[in-house]
Design a protein around this nucleic acid. Structure first.
Lengths: 121, 121
DNA sequence: CCGAATCCTGTGGGATACTG
DNA sequence: CAGTATCCCACAGGATTCGG
């Protein structure tokens, strides 16, 4: 067993970079919803998630678009119509997200039980 | 292509539950450091991460312990000695974390480039 | 050495109202 | 419909100090 401490590359750590974007309150959820539906309009995502504010949905989508994970297509008409879908980059991330979601589903009960029994000590 | 909007189970979504814990600023990083080293003492983790405050390391470790992802072993001696290591549950999560980290490593350059070119528009 | 306790600040993010 | 703009606050998290 190696016992030398590996220093995490503080400044340029990719995990931090990605997690700072994806680890916020809504991004992963948005990605998963988009993954389930191929193409969605703004309000469809809004309703799908339910308890996200317009502001945060807007901000989150913009971030995801900036990172190139989500594509935004505007139809110049009135009333406006905007469609969102995953880019190839976004799609390449989603298996890992789903894996995480799968693990969460399998182990949530255990975790909740752990938390409960931890309380009593 | 199905266009029916799937509502996320707002209240009991496992992904949210797990992400609220794991998606904070430090937890994943701590898990990865522990994964690289089998057993670590408090200060070893502290130094390995570098820019984490004592408080947040303490809090994060406690949360991870409460969820049953990390095991904490205290040696009752002076000066104190405390060892941390992953539980089996924690170990079962780590492949997915590593997968995410791997994806991050592979695609960070692309993402950074996307962000940069997004600025100019 | 391993934290707990306290204090303090920045900001993530909600509510609401307005616009093209 | 698809957002922006504004206001506002809770809380994550840093700095510092104290204790066993």
């Amino acid at each position: 067993m190696k016992k030398e401490v590996i220093f995490t590359d503080i400044l340029n750590c990719p995990v931090r970079n990605v997690l700072d974007r994806i680890g916020d309150k809504w991004s992963l959820l948005i990605l998963m919803v988009l993954n389930q539906n191929e193409v969605l309009r703004f309000n469809e995502i809004h309703q799908a998630i339910g308890d996200i504010s317009q502001k945060m949905l807007s901000v989150s989508l913009k971030n995801l678009e900036a990172d190139g994970l989500v594509n935004r297509k505007v139809y110049p008409q009135i009333p406006p119509k905007v469609e969102y879908k995953l880019t190839d980059l976004g799609k390449s991330l989603l298996p890992h997200v789903d894996a995480l979601a799968g693990w969460s589903n399998q182990n949530m009960q255990t975790i909740l039980a752990n938390r409960a029994s931890y309380q009593k000590s």
